[in-house]
Amino acid sequence: MIPDDDDFHYKSIINLLKYMSKVSAPPNFESDLMRRINSGNFKEKYKVQWWDKILLPSRVIPSAAVAASVVAILYFYNPNSTEYENPFLVKPVMREDISRVSTNRNLSTVPHEFAEASVNNSLKINKEGLNFLQIRINDAERAKINKLKEQIKAYFNKTQ
């Protein structure tokens, strides 16, 4: 045995182990052995059985963990479950107030401002709460917009 750096580092512990007294075989070891061999008594007391290989902790622990996981998955997973919903196939949730305006004509259930709009057959838009861009316009622009409005009104009157 060629000592290396590690051996040098653990020199004291190695010396303790190296100089432990040597244990010897019992005096009748060889005679017992040859007697067993000559009598054909090969019954193996310490034979490595197949379950010894299987029951190693290094194999039992991971196997048990895998088995437990499989049982847990089978317990919680039900392939016939009706609760399962494909998120891509689920109808989007409708906003209650909008759906009422567009589909429900029963005025008693329509909010006040929308009911008024339905009666007049035109929708008054309540700007409150809407997120729109406010821009300041000058007089010339306002005049131009008013002119366009007049033109649009005239066009609609003409077509009706």
Partner: peptide, 12 residues
């Protein structure tokens, strides 16, 4: 046990 194991080794 160790003497038995060594005997078993020799028989093997």
């Amino acid at each position: 046990t160790c003497a038995d194991i060594v005997q078993e080794t020799m028989i093997k």
